[in-house]
Amino acid sequence: MGNGTASPEVVDALFDGMRNLYGAKFEKQWGEFDEQGVWGAELAHLAISHLERGFHRLRVEIRDAARSGDTAWPPQPAAFAAMCEPRPEDVGLPTVDAAWREACAHCHDPAGWRWSHDAVRMAGQAIGWREIHGTTAQSVRVRLEKRFSHEYGALVNRVMAGQPLAAQGLIENDATRNRAELAERASREAAQQQAEAAGLPHRMNASQGLAMLKAATGRA
């Protein structure tokens, strides 16, 4: 997947970063390196830019835990992979929860509201404004929210992939795809814009990507 996939060297750098964050707790659980290949297998579909994003979120999680007096524990590989995945807010869209609240708040007059993003309006429309507005039973609203999350997630996938927002049939097809895969092009373009603004090389080879990951994890 693009440049900088989770090679053994990349996973080694990630392990060093995890030890910097969690100390002996991480090494006691996972050892000095990915001996069983569990981490490499779980992260294989992610680019280095995704791993950097996940590592940044770990730092935030640890800071939040420290502020509340809690102990932060090392994540499982699947949980860390999920932290690396792009989220709506990464591309300026509302979170799923915020989008659902907006849809509920303005379902009575969707045409008269200036939506934060067209994806929110389209997801609400796919569920049905009358159904959202008229349903009061909590069990039914839970199901509606789940359907909305599915529709909105599919639309977010399209935005992340740089594709136009599409009708219901196309949305259903995209809903089954890997979000990181759909986001690759959009992430690459966003990263390139940031790189150009910072005066970095137009293309980043594997060595440069590894160096950036080491810097992000404090290993450089």
Results as ranks from 00 to 15, higher is better:
29 Q>G: 06
32 E>P: 05
32 E>K: 14
32 E>A: 15
33 F>V: 06
34 D>R: 00
34 D>I: 00
35 E>M: 13
36 Q>I: 03
36 Q>H: 12
36 Q>Y: 10
38 V>C: 05
39 W>I: 10
41 A>Q: 13
41 A>N: 13
41 A>V: 10
43 L>I: 01
43 L>N: 00
44 A>D: 14
47 A>T: 09
48 I>N: 01
48 I>E: 02
51 L>C: 11
51 L>F: 04
53 R>Y: 00
54 G>F: 12
54 G>V: 11
58 L>K: 06
61 E>C: 03
62 I>E: 08
62 I>T: 10
69 G>D: 04
70 D>F: 07
72 A>T: 12
74 P>L: 00
75 P>M: 13
76 Q>W: 09
77 P>Y: 11
77 P>E: 13
78 A>S: 14
78 A>F: 10
81 A>T: 04
81 A>R: 08
83 M>A: 15
83 M>S: 14
85 E>M: 13
86 P>S: 12
86 P>C: 03
87 R>F: 02
88 P>R: 08
89 E>V: 12
91 V>Q: 08
91 V>E: 09
92 G>K: 08
94 P>L: 11
96 V>L: 11
98 A>Y: 07
98 A>N: 13
98 A>F: 11
99 A>T: 06
101 R>W: 04
101 R>M: 09
101 R>L: 11
102 E>K: 14
103 A>S: 02
103 A>C: 07
105 A>Q: 07
106 H>Y: 15
107 C>R: 07
109 D>T: 07
114 R>Q: 09
116 S>F: 03
116 S>G: 10
118 D>G: 05
118 D>C: 06
119 A>C: 06
120 V>Q: 03
121 R>C: 09
124 G>H: 02
124 G>N: 02
124 G>V: 10
125 Q>R: 12
126 A>Y: 01
127 I>R: 14
129 W>E: 02
129 W>R: 03
131 E>R: 09
132 I>A: 00
133 H>G: 04
133 H>W: 12
135 T>K: 02
137 A>E: 13
138 Q>G: 00
139 S>N: 09
139 S>V: 11
139 S>T: 14
140 V>R: 08
141 R>L: 08
